[in-house]
């Protein structure tokens, strides 16, 4: 073995094979590992997403209860409710963007390294997509649950709880989770794509 010249298919002059893409099962495994190992960091990012969504979902859930006010007061309350929901959405948008952007840009060097080791651009995007998807889904759902539970508990204690509230909540759950996942992906994918498309030398040089 030792003094035998290295003869490999890629040493045939004029011919280079194409790199095959990472298999999904492997990418999934790497993603899970990456989240688990960085548990502290992942939890902080997830908390950022969850808090934003919790704020939004609590405002929305509060809106599901019929207002006790009547007449012009009810209209004013309705407007206030809408305004709060928009504000909540903006706050959670900025919060999620911030945590996800940070967690991707701080890994530019890692992306450069992976490209040196033979990763394709789409492998890298897939890894970050899976990670963002997983984080977005769990965190948004948790966030929705927290926000919703707070509102339900408050209304149970103040005696205003009605079973019909539960029915409207399913839509709210889908909406909140969907918005959370969408913002998470929107924040994570563009920088990951940008880093993947960079020549590895530049991704390796970048430092934050």
């Amino acid at each position: 073995m030792s003094d035998q010249p290295i003869e490999q298919p890629q040493n045939v002059p004029g011919k280079v094979q194409k790199q095959v893409s990472l298999r999904f099962a492997k990418a999934w495994e790497i993603t899970i590992k990456s989240i688990k190992i960085r548990l502290g960091r992942s939890l902080i990012t997830a908390a950022g997403i969850a808090l934003g969504i919790a704020f939004y979902s609590s405002v929305r859930a509060a809106g599901l209860f019929p207002s006790t006010a009547i007449g012009p007061e009810a209209i004013a309350a309705g407007h206030r409710q809408q305004w709060l929901a928009v504000m909540a959405l903006m706050v959670c948008f900025v919060g999620i963007m911030n945590s996800m952007l940070m967690s991707v840009t701080e890994r530019f060097k890692e992306i450069g390294t992976m490209k040196c080791l033979g990763a394709l651009n789409r492998d890298i995007v897939m890894l970050f997509f899976l990670e963002a998807m997983m984080m977005g889904l769990t965190a948004s759902f948790t966030g929705w649950l927290v926000g919703w539970l707070i509102v339900v508990v408050i209304h149970i204690f103040t005696g205003g709880f009605q079973p019909s509230f539960i029915a409207g909540s399913v839509m709210e759950m889908l909406l909140s989770t969907g918005i959370g996942v969408a913002i998470t992906l929107m924040a994570a994918i563009p920088p990951a794509v940008r880093a993947a498309q960079m020549p590895p030398a530049i991704a390796l040089r970048s430092s934050i």
């Binding site: 490999q8 890629q10 040493n11 280079v16 094979q17 194409k18 790199q19 490209k115 040196c116 080791l117 033979g118 990763a119 394709l120 651009n121 590895p200």
Partner: peptide, 12 residues
């Protein structure tokens, strides 16, 4: 192309 370059970085 990108995939061939990646192959080169990976194997060669």
């Amino acid at each position: 192309d990108a995939a061939e370059l990646a192959y080169l970085r990976c194997h060669t």
